[in-house]
Design a protein around this nucleic acid. Structure first.
Lengths: 178, 178
DNA sequence: TATTGTTATACTCTATAACTATA
DNA sequence: TATAGTTATAGAGTATAACAATA
């Protein structure tokens, strides 16, 4: 969510289900757990809640490598499409060109990626990973894959495939993103 | 996901699958669509992509009522828990107290919610919806429910229930959020 | 005239520290 | 001293306009 949102561990009261319902005049709900109520019935709410958790997990997973999610995606997409221009890679990941420039500055300073002027069109910059960048990417993929498998294991037999199939039916496929 | 991200409609090349793979020295990928590659194999990626689309949809749905997602959640949770304090409601939704104050200022100025000092503890503010706030919330719930049903319809028979069951197996349940 | 990439800038969401008034 | 709420502020992430170099 985001941004993404982090550390949402809300410490709440211990009781359960003792609060009154609705908005009758003067009604009060003084003890027990908060009723999130209908909010939990929306696909969007559940989807977002799960996604925020996964994304926070993702961020923690990549922290040891000092990689932000957008940096990871950039390394991975450059690796799969070496020589493409900034505009192409940025569009594929869903980052605006101005922001992508700063992101690449960081990767270049760390020696993970490099820009080279295209000979055919000297306006554009072709992107490549350095060996160091490729090595870091491989390390990151290992960590992320392990995390992904842990999540998949929670979903039970066939759960992972079912989830991916259902998520494909939700639009958003036309976009690319982080 | 991030924030939430919007307008990610990336205009890309028309071709498909003609780009070369991997990061062999000097490899180039000059034509065709960008290969997002392994990125699409991660649950986290698909989950985030779907969630961002749903969230953008959600934002568009509430725009006619001039409600942001966090405002909608706040109205809904206050309605379900009238008389609770700011700290309790804020924690349930996953908003930091400083940010929640500003959010409530907006709702109060529009006459949708009100704060009243608790008699038992004059430090805390009990929250209630005004009739106007309740009416706007009901209107918002109609819009959001209609959108949610459209998404559910895309998932096919039983798809909605299956998706919600799978999402419940992903952690994040301990938190409450927007 | 159009496009690539950059600079500057702004807006939103989120987070923390320090203050106040109560307890 | 501890807590509820506020103020001030800072950091991400994302968005647009204007510019220089090149086409």
């Amino acid at each position: 969510m985001e941004g993404s949102g982090s550390n949402r561990a809300a410490q709440r009261g211990g009781g359960r289900g003792r609060s009154r319902r609705g908005s009758e005049a003067g009604a009060i709900s003084t003890s027990g757990a908060i009723e999130v109520g209908r909010l939990g019935e929306f696909i969007g709410y559940r989807l977002r809640r799960a996604q925020v958790w996964v994304f926070e997990n993702f961020i923690r997973t990549l922290t040891p490598l000092d990689l932000r999610p957008a940096q990871f995606s950039t390394l991975l997409v450059i690796d799969g499409n070496p020589g493409r221009t900034q505009a192409e890679i940025a569009a594929a990941i869903g980052i605006q060109p101005p922001n992508f420039g700063a992101l690449l500055d960081g990767l270049e300073k760390r020696g993970l990626a490099r820009r080279s002027r295209s000979q055919s069109d000297r306006r554009s910059h072709a992107l490549h990973l350095t060996p160091k960048g490729k090595a870091l990417l491989d390390e990151a993929i290992k960590l992320v894959s392990a995390q992904d498998e842990q999540i998949g294991a929670r979903l039970g037999p066939g759960g992972r495939e079912t989830l991916l199939q259902l998520l494909e039916k939700v639009p958003g496929l036309a976009d690319e993103m982080i």
